[in-house]
């Protein structure tokens, strides 16, 4: 009986310590420093963002690996919605067989990691290789990731992929990879690569403290996030999208 009581008390103390540490770590998470704003009413689907992202972040050139990509949503008059993203928009878009007369409306939607405030990918990572930094960006530790793919399953936005052996960055092979909002740039005060090359200002990056644009963006009517019902609290804000865009 004594032995059982001893074991139980050790177990109890262990759980209490773990709980305390969890509480401390969740409290220490500061408010986000960055926001990403996408204005689909300005996007022309040129794909420069996709190209620049691939180059800046050593993303493999094969057409199935993307940290950011562009989708085209087309509402046809018969009610059908077509969503296409040939090569992620890398080479731009062609109208193809769709006739203008059949189209109700159509626009391009740039996609990227939403850097969720409640990231499901972080919750499911069994080893702590995916985590949210104190400034609110979700990163992947390539030295610690096992490549178990749980996070890929968990992400509702399809923002992650497993880095292939054909990629230029060998230390990342076999690990989960995704958009970091160019963490190596934004921490130096530079804009992400996709924002830098966007010719129309459809992508805007906001440094929350002291950014004049924040007030204007927050004041826009019809500002949306993707899949808000998932409870992930995304930090990419979209302007001009319909509820069908997911």
């Amino acid at each position: 009986m004594k032995r059982r009581r001893f074991l139980l008390s050790v177990l109890g103390l262990g759980f209490a310590a773990a709980g305390l540490q969890l509480k401390v770590s969740s409290v220490s998470a500061a408010s986000p420093k960055f926001l990403f704003f996408v204005d689909v009413t300005k996007c022309i689907g040129c794909g420069r963002c996709v190209v620049a992202c691939k180059i800046e972040n050593d993303v493999p050139m094969e057409p199935i690996f993307f940290r950011t990509w562009v989708e085209r949503y087309t509402w046809l008059r018969d009610g059908e919605i077509k969503v296409v993203s040939p090569n992620g928009g890398f080479n731009g878009f062609e109208d193809g067989s769709i006739e203008a007369i059949e189209v109700e409306k159509s626009y391009f939607v740039p996609k990227l990691c939403n850097q969720c405030d409640e990231p499901p990918c972080v919750q499911v990572c069994p080893v702590g290789a995916t985590y949210k930094t104190e400034d609110g960006v979700v990163l992947v530790d390539e030295k610690y990731c096992l490549g178990c793919r749980y996070c890929i399953q968990a992400c509702p936005y399809g923002a992650r992929y497993i880095y292939p052996s054909s990629g230029p960055r060998k230390s990342r092979v076999g690990t989960a990879d995704k958009c970091t909002w160019c963490y190596h740039r934004i921490t130096k005060g530079l804009e992400p690569a996709c924002v830098k090359v966007c010719p129309t200002g459809a992508r805007q990056f906001v440094f929350v403290s002291g950014d004049q644009r924040l007030r204007r963006i927050k004041g826009l009517k019809g500002l949306k996030t993707l899949k808000p019902e998932m409870g992930t609290k995304p930090k990419v804000l979209y302007f001009g999208i319909d509820s069908e865009v997911r």
Binding site: S25, S28, A29, A52, I55, E56, G128, A129, T130, Y131, K132, T133, E134, L139, D141, K143, Y144, T180, Y183, H184, R185, T187, K188, L190, A193, K196, V197
Partner: peptide, 22 residues
């Protein structure tokens, strides 16, 4: 040190080389 991850990793990612003009 900061949370349930390798604190060093943040600096490693932030320290990556940029390729597009700074």
């Amino acid at each position: 040190e900061i949370g349930w991850y390798r604190a060093e990793s943040v600096g490693e990612i932030a320290g990556l080389q940029t390729k597009i003009g700074e």
